[in-house]
Structures are given as structure tokens and as C-alpha cells.
Design a protein around this nucleic acid. Structure first.
Lengths: 192, 192
DNA sequence: GGGTCAACCAAGCAAGCGCTAGTGTAAATG
DNA sequence: CATTTACACTAGCGCTTGCTTGGTTGACCC
């Protein structure tokens, strides 16, 4: 019944929604729970979002955009050799999985709760992110740093990284940088 | 209000429930939808299962038990060198991901919908399965076939394999055997 | 100092939810 | 033949759901 811009207020509400979606899952999170977490009444929620689905889309959109930004920045900042670039991407991936953990967990678990238009829009964003990965992996393959099929390797690597949300403890001993280094070490062939 | 054994009837109902849980997600699948899929009325459902949660637990339990069985059989049947055993485990994992795809997708996505008692019981089953993996990976590390930290390697490998449910097309060109071979090739160090 | 507008609220509707109670019935069991 | 068992049915209770409606508030603006 009203605006659906990206006001700062809406950004903050989106962040809070992400937390609840992680705790409870999208379907079990009611608009009343969301409103209470936000400190408003359930009716007021629909001033900021058209419907419940739009909140989900907003959460996932922000997470994916942040991931894209971090990955691009990391690639700009690193050395140009394939090993460094592979490590930079893996590290960026793990870092965004930490800083925007809630949004990414929601994206991983609740993707199929999106309606068709939102899914179409967001899958373009995700494709842009995955294109970055395939580029870096192509370079590593061409340089002989790793071996295998480019399609399979990129899927295997993304799987290994995304799976970390299941077991990685941010308060534990290992840093994202270490994890990224271990992953690259596991894949890389010894220098000729 | 009645039995909760594992009759053949219940097995069949469990299989059908798994399909719906994949299509719609656990929370959005209503007992009325389940009953219709099963060809009975919603009230009759509670003759076979205590409540909706128990259906979810039954689905996941069967999938995990099958995975364990297939993995054990694969290990019994293969050569004793670490490369063969690694390949056998990966292949078994991919095969059960195919034959019991619905159950495994449910286990991956809806695990957190389980109540505490069911989760406790099923996590023991899952631990038994993961122990098989760690054993095989330890052998490969000891033999120098792969390198890295045993904890990290096993997590990365499981992640890569489980992620296949997102992109693998069973009707496509690649067989589980090929995929497993590619994965092992990606990880294995060249023979000394 | 009247007008604008984002932000919020109280109240509630229509639909759908998991689950229960009580009954019917055909086959198996004594 | 009498009883039990397994499975299915009808009917609906009590509650929650996403969302709407109609209205109030208070900060800002010319």
C-alpha cells in the first residue's frame, strides 16, 4: 500500500528479519514475530514491505550484493598470479559468509521460498557472482595450478565453501584466511 | 494414538511424503496435502504417524540408513588402496544422493525442523556415516595421496559432494562414477 | 501555522492449520 | 461364532496465519 524504496529504516528492518529467518526458518517466522523483533506492530510492517515474500527477497538481495562487492574488491587488491587470485576469492567468500552470515544462510536455505519474479531477479545477481569464480578458476586451470573440468571444479569448490556455514565456528581458532589457504593447498598441484 | 512400527505401508507413505517435502518444503506441506498424495483422508494419516514431525523423522531416517548401507557395501567391495577406497566412498555418496534423492534433500534442508529427540537420534546415525568418511580420508592422508588437515579435508569433500544436489542432473551425460573420479583426480597428488 | 507525509497503531477478517474424537468395516485370530 | 486388529472415514475444535482497514502521530516545510 506504500513505498518499497530502500530507505535506511528498511535496511535495518531487513537485517533484523535475516536474523529471525535464520533462527526459525522463513515459513515459521510469522509477521508478528518479525514486527516484535523490529519493535513495531505487525500492521506497520506492511508500510515497508509489500508482503512477507518481499522481506525474504530483500534479505537475500543485500547478502548477494555484498558478496559481489567484497569479491570484486578482493580481486582488485591482490597479486595477478592465479594462486593469489584463487586464494583471494576463497577468502572473500568466507569473509562475506561471516560478516553477512544471516543473509547468506537464508539465501542457501530459503531460496526456494522465493516467488518466480524475485527468483529471476536474484538469480541474475548470483550468476554475476559465480561468473567471477569461473573466471578465476579458468585462470588457475590454464596456468596448470589445478586440474579438472572447469564446470565441475567450480561446482566442487563452491560446494566446499558454502558447506562451511554448517560447521565453521567464527569464534574458533581458524581465520577465513587460513581456511582459504588450506583449500587452495588441497587443490593446488605442486610447482613444476 | 496407535502403532508406530515400520510396516511396509508406512515405508511407502514415507516415500511419498519425502517427495512432497522436497517440492514444497516441510512447513508448507500440510497434512491434508500429504493425505491427498497418499490417497487417504487427513485424519487417517495419524494412524501411521504420531504427528507431522514423525513423518519428517521417518523420511530422514530412511535416507541416512540407506546411505550407510550403500557406503559400507561399497567399501567391502573395493580394492584396499586409498585411491580406490576414496573413489568408492565418493561414488557411493553420489549414488545414494540419486536413488534416495528426496530423502537426502529433505535431510539437508529440513534438518532444523526436527524436534530435539528426533535430532538426537538421527545425528548418531549421521555421525556413523561421517566416521566412515573420516576413516577413508585418514588412509588417503597417511598414504600421501592427498594432503591437508583431516578435519578440513573431510568437511570440504562432504561439502563438495552434498552441493551436487543443487546442480547435478541425473538425466545428463555424467555418471556418478565419473563425478567421483573427477573429484578424486582434483584432490589427488600425482604419484611419486 | 496549515499542509504533507513517512511511520506507526488497534482491530479484525477470511482462510488455513495440526490434530482429535468417534465411528465403520473387512480381514485375521481365538 | 466372537473378538481383535488394521485401516480408513466424517466432522470439526481451537488456534494462528498473512494481510487489510481506517485512523493517529509527530517531524518537517514554505
Amino acid at each position: 500500500m506504500n513505498v518499497m524504496n530502500d530507505s535506511p529504516r528498511r535496511k535495518e528492518l531487513t537485517r533484523q528479519a535475516a536474523q529471525l529467518f535464520v533462527q526459525e526458518g522463513f515459513d515459521r517466522t510469522t509477521v508478528r514475530m518479525l514486527a516484535e523483533e523490529m519493535g513495531i506492530k505487525s500492521g506497520s510492517l506492511f508500510h515497508h514491505f509489500r508482503d512477507k515474500q518481499e522481506i525474504l527477497a530483500a534479505v537475500i538481495e543485500e547478502g548477494t550484493e555484498n558478496a559481489l562487492g567484497i569479491a570484486r574488491a578482493a580481486l582488485d587488491d591482490c597479486d595477478s598470479d592465479p594462486g593469489s587470485r584463487l586464494h583471494a576469492m576463497a577468502r572473500a567468500h568466507l569473509e562475506t559468509l561471516l560478516t553477512d552470515r544471516n543473509a547468506h544462510v537464508v539465501a542457501l536455505y530459503e531460496w526456494r521460498r522465493l516467488d518466480a519474479p524475485a527468483r529471476s531477479h536474484l538469480s541474475h545477481l548470483r550468476d554475476a557472482y559465480e561468473a567471477l569464480w569461473e573466471e578465476v578458476i579458468d585462470e588457475a586451470l590454464a596456468a596448470g595450478l589445478i586440474r579438472g573440468d572447469r564446470f565441475l571444479v567450480s561446482r566442487f569448490v563452491m560446494g566446499a565453501l558454502n558447506w562451511t556455514v554448517r560447521w565453521y565456528d567464527p569464534d574458533g581458532e581458524r581465520t577465513p584466511d587460513e581456511l582459504a589457504r588450506e583449500l587452495v593447498a588441497m587443490l593446488a598441484r605442486p610447482a613444476d
